[in-house]
């Protein structure tokens, strides 16, 4: 089932075509990676998909609905959630509260109930707490639940963002460089986590520079260069494409990829 369809998506910043006529599909339960050199437009693409930037042309369809130009909070309701390359953690909250904040949609909007502290308000909070603790356990941070989020290591914060995004219960999860700045062990953990999430039927769109990770877990790879899609296909196909090697991978990385693929 095609969950996300992107057609002719483009954006210009003062004449510079940051993303130009990009097309692709993402299917439920599949991991699709977007790769390309720095400045290729990967994060810009993500920001358009998640409603932060307004595309100058093109269409985004999520689960059959046209969602072009929808604000982020509406996209969340339609089942899209994301993480950020430059972390957007709620630093004045505890680790647990960060994930609980992700439960916003299941909690609903009941301001008067919350002001009066009625039992229903406490029930919703306890339910979120339970869900959030479950997610923290999954990313291995349950022992840090009551710590201030600002005290966590970089790698832990990256995983915390994934947990918060999962709390939204997305059908489509956008991960912007989840392994950036993580050591080998942490990258391995994130690798498992992503595969697990996809196995549950969530579609994953991934921007990542760690080629080993990308080639190992992706079902499909899209290559961007200077705002345009230069090719897409299976990881093995993409890795052998001369255009990709020239634009991005280089010879040494190609060897690395072949090693990773065995």
């Amino acid at each position: 089932m095609t969950l996300l369809t992107v057609e002719d998506l483009s954006i210009e910043f003062g004449g510079l075509k940051a993303v130009d006529g990009v097309n692709f599909n993402v299917e439920a339960g599949k991991i699709v990676s977007v790769i390309g050199p720095n400045g290729a437009g990967k994060t810009t693409l993500f920001n358009m998909l998640s409603g932060l930037y307004t595309p100058s042309r093109g269409r985004v369809t999520l689960a059959g609905k046209d969602v072009t130009n929808q604000p982020p909070y509406k996209l969340a309701r339609l089942g899209m959630s994301r993480t950020f390359q430059n972390l957007q953690i709620f630093l004045q909250m505890s680790v647990l509260e960060n994930v609980m904040a992700g439960c916003h949609l299941t909690e609903g909007r009941h301001i008067v109930t919350d002001l009066l502290g009625l039992p229903a308000s406490g029930r919703r909070t306890r339910q979120s707490m339970k869900d959030a603790l479950g997610l923290l356990e999954r990313i291995g941070l349950q022992s840090h639940a009551t710590d201030e989020a600002s005290g966590l290591s970089y790698g832990a914060l990256k995983r915390l963002e994934i947990a918060r995004a999962l709390a939204v219960r997305p059908q489509l999860l956008l991960l912007d460089e989840p392994a950036a700045g993580c050591n080998a062990v942490e990258t391995e953990e994130i690798d498992h986590l992503i595969a697990e999430i996809a196995a549950e039927g969530v579609a994953i769109l991934l921007v990542e520079h760690d080629m080993k990770l990308v080639m190992k877990i992706s079902d499909h790879v899209i290559v961007l260069d200077q705002g345009m899609k230069i090719t897409e296909g299976l990881p093995t196909e993409v890795a052998q494409n001369p255009k990709v090697i020239e634009a991005y991978l280089g010879v040494k990385a190609t060897e690395e990829v072949h090693n990773a693929l065995g």
Binding site: G51, P71, A76, R82, L91, H104, V168
Partner: peptide, 11 residues
């Protein structure tokens, strides 16, 4: 803390 992140969780 982050209007952007608040939006992406549905606020």
């Amino acid at each position: 803390d982050s209007e952007v992140a608040a939006g992406t969780v549905g606020v």
